[in-house]
Design a protein around this nucleic acid. Sequence first.
DNA 1: AATTCTCCTTGACCAAAGTCAATAAATACA
DNA 2: TGTATTTATTGACTTTGGTCAAGGAGAATT
Lengths: 187, 187
Amino acid sequence: MEALRKHFEKFITLSENEWQDLQVCLTKETIKKKNLLLKENERCDFIAFIHEGIFRFYSFNDDAERITAFFFSGDFVSNYRSFLTGKPSEHNIEALADGVIYKIKLEQLKQLYDKHQTFERLGRLIAENLYLTVADRLDSFMFQTPADRYNELVKRNSKLLLEIPQYMLASYLGITPETLSRIRARK
Amino acid sequence: MEALRKHFEKFITLSENEWQDLQVCLTKETIKKKNLLLKENERCDFIAFIHEGIFRFYSFNDDAERITAFFFSGDFVSNYRSFLTGKPSEHNIEALADGVIYKIKLEQLKQLYDKHQTFERLGRLIAENLYLTVADRLDSFMFQTPADRYNELVKRNSKLLLEIPQYMLASYLGITPETLSRIRARK
DNA sequence: AATTCTCCTTGACCAAAGTCAATAAATACA
DNA sequence: TGTATTTATTGACTTTGGTCAAGGAGAATT
């Protein structure tokens, strides 16, 4: 639970009182490798803080799985679009390893927004952060070649390289496993 | 000014008092066609509400201009990344037509955030909205072919089709003018 | 009205990534 | 330990979009 508090405090400082109110909203869950945290067509009514574990966020395009994102311990994981709009998710979230998470439900978060201005601000900061993350990723798809994207990933994100099989990385980079293998070969 | 109030009220209801506080922060500006609202390497310290006009958001990749977004009357325009992070902009914002805008500066917005919880919420809602916009665009680049993207644009965004020359649309779709011309030809 | 730009189209060719198929290497597991 | 399965590599071929170049249509300017 302390890890969780530290993580929130990267965004904002919580008073003892606010932290208490937050804690009662959080429910701890465990999840086994290969199980789904969220299924296609379900509404995503939660945000989960990952205490332990790895998750992949993917959907089906025709018949092929396409991975949009990975999440690690210390991250928040959710289908944020479904969470914000109330529309059913077009994606699945799958545990790639056994995990422990803390969930907060939409309804309870709304109550926190109303109760303390601090949470309203936290909500803003999280949304701003997510904006920056997606905007970066959009840029990489608009302006970079697959090789560029792979090199950047190598530079920045050794965690992905160590923990994720190559065919999933390829999907995440928007290319086929064959192409990724060739990119790696010609270096 | 009433148009502006209506626009904010799409997001949130402002009390008379809050609306007064907001108004004193807004400065009206006019801008001529082909002039820049923001230059590469400048910090973007404002968000502008477009009362009248059309803007394009673009940068240079090697020597070629690449357009990331268009903005119309009723939209907020800004380099939101630069605005949030304080880093210099990698993009230009150019007026494609004579325009009238209302600017609010970062410093003043921060003061509003502190003064009224309502503005904190407004800030959150705007960030959430921008998130959804970029996330949609990322999806279109990850999962769709250029022809798909063009067809979607035809379906949804007749404003772009009417007001924007084809070679700029091509850039916005991430393809060359030649390719867009061919996509249109084979229908 | 003539000239000059700007924008769009079309063709020939090229490069990058996808597809399909075979094989090799690594890992899981019985 | 040996077998089966999953993952990674390589080759031959195809597809898609980019590049370069030429030409034409429209709009703006003189």
